[in-house]
Nucleic acid binder design. Structure first.
Lengths: 110, 110
DNA sequence: CAATTTATTCTATATTGTATAGCTAATGTC
DNA sequence: GACATTAGCTATACAATATAGAATAAATTG
């Protein structure tokens, strides 16, 4: 465990997108998945910046695939989560869960 | 909803601490609650900086209480979460949940 | 090879995360 | 009441994360 042990808010979302996209995760699909699921709009630049950071930390790995026979289309960079990345997700989840334990939320707060 | 709609990772933890501490949340107890629950050590400065930001965004409010009759017992600044703050927590939770839906985690990833 | 398309990289800036040091207001002691 | 001691809060600074937009690259087609 290095200096910052918990995933940032957006890092968390991005890494979850990778997990659910499994073998077909690359910039564009990651963005789509996040937008489709959460309704949150994010720039493609934001996606890549985060992917790069996560890879640097060893939570992801990536490799370029073969270009697909579509109009245009340079080759995609596919990402997958490492075991270390999965640990980070779990750690982050546990932290929130421990703080949420026994709270009802949706409360009546002024 | 303004520019950044989701709580940052630490903001999230801090606001959850306030919710569970209810009427007795102030700098010191917030810090204790987080450390006790998550095992995560945070400086008191980090706590206040985050509380101040959350208050600026309207997610919290604070007021000073009466000084307590202890040695050094100066008055505490008590914090409570606003309705807007509760909404932010829920929004953040929903985002993660929508991304987690149907994932097993604890997976076998390389 | 120019135009078009899909995808990635670069760059720049705002917001968050985090620690340390310093300041204030209480109480206790002589 | 001057001064030490204590609990709690503020100020400041800097590193890391979030985010957008423009620029660049690599394919495909006529």
């Amino acid at each position: 465990m290095s200096s910052r042990d918990y995933l940032g808010e957006f890092e968390h979302i991005v890494i979850l997108a990778l997990l659910r996209l499994a073998g077909r995760a690359y910039g564009v699909t990651v963005r789509q998945e996040i937008e489709a699921r959460t309704g949150r709009e994010v720039s493609i630049g934001a996606i890549y910046a985060t992917l790069d950071r996560l890879e640097t930390k060893g939570y992801l790995k990536s490799q370029f695939g073969e270009p697909t026979p579509e109009r245009g289309g340079r080759s995609k960079r596919f990402f997958h989560v490492t075991a270390k990345g999965v640990s980070a997700v779990n750690r982050t989840h546990r932290a929130v869960q421990s703080m949420t334990q026994g709270l009802d939320l949706i409360g009546s707060h002024s």
